[in-house]
Amino acid sequence: MTQEVTHWLDNLLKEIEGIEVRRKSSRRVRVDVPADALPALLELLQGRAGYIHLSAISCVDWIDDDEFELVYHVWSYENHSLVSAHIRIAREPGVYLSVYDLYQPAGFFERDIHEMYGIQFEGSPNMEKFILTEWDGPPPMRKEFDSEAYINEHLSWQEYNPEWLQELVAEGGGVIIPPEEQRFSQKKK
């Protein structure tokens, strides 16, 4: 991206209130905006700067802050740069606006995030289940959902009892550290 375009983009972004722009590299820009300013920002980026490709929407569950972070990665085929717009929304009720009207790919990402994190995107065309059709537990990508605990509770480990193991047990040996203990526990004081 040329210097000129860089300046032009920076100036453009200044139009949004409460925006924080960080240029991470020549082709990566991080933008933090208040949640309610995001649609305007995207509109600006798309309409005036050629960021027509929504590469992805990523969701991060910052459970300690009681917030979800939504990151909108948009790419400009003209500027050859990728802007990642970060917003934070409250974890409860976990509702945000759909950007489907601006970017059609948002339909998939919003549906996915809804399924995995339980965030409701108002105005998104399709909030149906897609991957977790038979799942009625909590949205599994939320940090409070402990999938390892769930697995240990609902499924059992394959039991083996080969001859060599029986021989070792007869000798006084055998399984000492099962893998789940090594992985899931840490020495308690």
Binding site: L165, G173, P179
Partner: peptide, 18 residues
């Protein structure tokens, strides 16, 4: 048991061989 710790899939069990 370093192998056990690095194992991705908990495929390694440490067995006592007396």
């Amino acid at each position: 048991s370093s192998c056990q710790k690095v194992c991705d899939n908990a495929a390694i069990t440490m067995v006592k061989v007396p």
